[in-house]
Design a protein around this nucleic acid. Sequence first.
RNA 1: GCCCGAGUGGCGGAAUUGGCAGACGCUCAGGAUUUAAAAUCCUGUGUCCUUACGGACGUGCGGGUUCAAGUCCCGCCUCGGGUACCA
Length: 945
Amino acid sequence: MPKYNPAEIEPRWQRFWDENKTFKTPTEVTGEKLYALDMFPYPSGEGLHVGHPEGYTATDIVSRHARMVGKTVLHPMGFDAFGLPAEEHAIKHNASPREFTEKNINTFVRQLKDLGFSYDWDRQISTTDVDYFKWTQWIFLVLFDTWFDADQQKGRPISELPIPTEIKESGEDAVRKYQDEFRLAFESHAPVNWCPALGTVLANEEVVDGLSDVGDHPVQRMPLRQWMLRITAYADRLESDLDQVDWPEGIKKLQCDWIGRSTGAEVDFFIGDNDQFEPWKKTRTENGFPRNLPDDALRVYTTRPDTLYGATYMVIAPEHGAVEKLTTTEQAPAVKKYCDDAAMKSDRDRQDDRTKKTGVFTGSYAINPINGQPVPIWVADYVLASYGTGAIMAVPAHDARDFEFAKTYDLPIIAVVLPPAKSEIDQAKLMAGEICFAGVGTAVNSEIYNDLPTDEFKNKIIETLDSAAVGCSAVNYKLRDWLFSRQRFWGEPFPILHELDEAGNRTGIMRPVPLESLPVDLPFVEDFKPHGRPEPPLEKADDEWLYPVIDGKKYKRETNTMPQWAGSCWYYLRFIDPDNASAFIDPELEKQWMPVDLYIGGAEHAVLHLLYARFWHKVLFDRGHLHTPEPFKKLVNQGMILGDVEFTAFRDTNEQWVSAELTCENDERKTVLKSTGEELHVVKLDPEQAEKEGDNFVLKSDQQIRVDSRAYKMSKSRGNVVNPDVIIAEYGADSLRLYEMFMGPLHQSKPWSMAGVNGVRNFLDRVWRMLVEEKAEELCLSSAVGDHSPTDEQVRMLHKTIKAVSKDIETLGFNTAISRMMEFVNFFTKQSERPKSLMEPFILLLSPFAPHLAEELWKLLGNDSSLAYEPWPKFDESLTVDARVEVPIQIMGKIKSKVSIERGKSAKELETIALQDPKIATLLEGLTVRKIIAVPDKLVNIVAN
RNA sequence: GCCCGAGUGGCGGAAUUGGCAGACGCUCAGGAUUUAAAAUCCUGUGUCCUUACGGACGUGCGGGUUCAAGUCCCGCCUCGGGUACCA
């Protein structure tokens, strides 16, 4: 009994593809190329999750389709394998992170092959391969060798950096140190996330709400020598080049917001005696606006220079360099205490305190350059040292934070912007300082600028400030430079040597490891357990590794390692030329294949990975190593696959049911009674126990009790994780692929449903039976399939299907493509004659979606080679439309009748046909026809009363 | 708070430029086949009224534009995601 048996078919075809290298990338691109890329996975110990194959199936369908339309396809897969979990595992089990990682990669490869993806496995790479990270280190050295020329907006070799004469005269070391200040990769003393409980430093992404992602321990900020990458230099290009790519608008916006470009002005407030203000202004006008701020002024950044007349006080960050200088002796103890407290505060505490504003008066005043008014200077932690100039002019009438602060400390509030007339803001309250208005409007209380609209005012006042040399227009970004080092073992070592003096101390001179000495491999380290101090584990390497001697000089290797992002910043380039031993990529191949045409992955990488990769790409582009300014032409984010829908009900301590709308979640994520906070039992219901009542679900046994119905994110703790291995074993890989595509639109998140998997399996069974004689002893074609000449109707069915499926693959509308194929099968299983000439093209249509089954049936239809490169079926437009159409006839927009007519009737003819329709004629009796709208082949609407 | 995204049957979801709401699948019900079951095949399945013929209502809510609105405009509500003192 030859039943559809994926467990037998699928491994057989996977072996066939493997042995015949069916999906090996051609060495030459002929005709059009397609580079279809998945965001490569982190090979976790848990193995593949059903979320992975969603995007992978999508790119696989696109790739398989592209091969059939004659494109040359690059479709690779690799692994982003550095990272904390492997290191943690190694510490716990006293094992090697490399072995653990390799084991996990093997599992992933096995699982991916089980799904029948058409990857070119000869190009498999892992970021942990020594041959791979050799080039990651090389790219780091490119960054190290590059400075950003702001005038040309371009990264250039450090050797081209203009050196001031006085530096040049001070000798070679001075020049090297000067250059070091401009490199895109540079050292700095930055605060890091130090977690005392875990005894380790954490990456930002491992800190959630000021607590460690693992174990919820508090995290402190402490300064440490770190490597930084000057991504801020590329902020403008990273923002403006988004115009060149075909990405979802939402993702572009996320990146823009993350870059956070804002325009405004820097303004200097004079610090000194009142009678010195006029002379100061005069000197300024004469000497111009100083690039480096002199001691006699406090510089602020504002996006609203138009509110300068409303600045009633100033605030500097507790970490601001001028705090001490500005603090009067009288205020010194209070200010010192405040700043010390702020430094001690963990991020968590700062978050908790965010709602209430605190601060302390320094005792000094600054003079507003526009009106000569003295304003008090405060210190407060709601101003960040790391943004703008670390100081602000506070305009409480027009900024919510300043308003709150002014109310707390009873500072004056002066309104200087009137809201537009149609606004609902209460003007009287605004003028009285009772409310705050942050929008735009027209100026008031601003002397000669009164009545100017905000925008005009801004431009005018920047001009004024500029000509008086007390301010200038300025741009700021939320984007910070990228903290690029980690104090971990399992990452790429930096290819940097620090020169040591006789005593073994760093001289401050750095030397890149030369290309011929790359890669710098990870040394053997006995034990990389955290030891309570934030020193990198590589400090424990033996002296031979740690202290190389070159040309008689002793060096110490850099012992920080790169973050996990490093390897994923350029892997898409290496896939093009994975075995190149002499370069990171062959320039000719790069020209052939770049950019990536389609890039699919999760939205969790919308900002960081995509921004970092674009940054590296631009640096490599500037330095002439690449020919495209952007790496990823089209980007699609797949939605999240949630667990099966769950029904939950709640019981109180007396075992009484509590209706869902009376409950809420408390801070500890426990479900409690809204009114009393009493903790409730959460009861998972069988779907049978719930039923729909109005807009909600209720208990069948007590319809007064509302229950919760929703799908949750899959998680181990919730126990709703679906393992792809299990689905493949039970339904087959083709069913899993098809189901994940059939669930809904690719970009949308959607709940898993086992019944749905069964549904698509049913469809594949029907495909099988459409062609296979199930009752026969041996595998053979169904008697219905043969060399019949097809009927018109059958031909139309095929051509309609080809058209729809082809279009849907192009727009990535896989769910509707599948439903069209279902319609085809539903139609033909009812036909007693199924012409082979129509069955063959159908199998080709199905093949990108369910490749194993398609290959099997293709062979059964008498073909002896793989269908992977068969030409994609073509359709004839004229054969996709029916000769007759059914046209609804409406009266006043309501359908009253339908007529079947020949396609292509004119509006005039339609009108006549509609009025002659007996049913319509009866209904129109006694009514006056006012107007008839007839849309050919669509509908007729009669307006009558 | 702010910024995105989404609300369509019991469920997942379909619906070129406004033009037959509910394609396709699941679920459920009935029937055929079968000694029986599984499998398969057929029929039905938005809500309400009606014995029926048929009719009324219906795309989160309230308004509007239009011959015609799931689709366009205005005002809300709910859910999901992101982000958080960025001046």
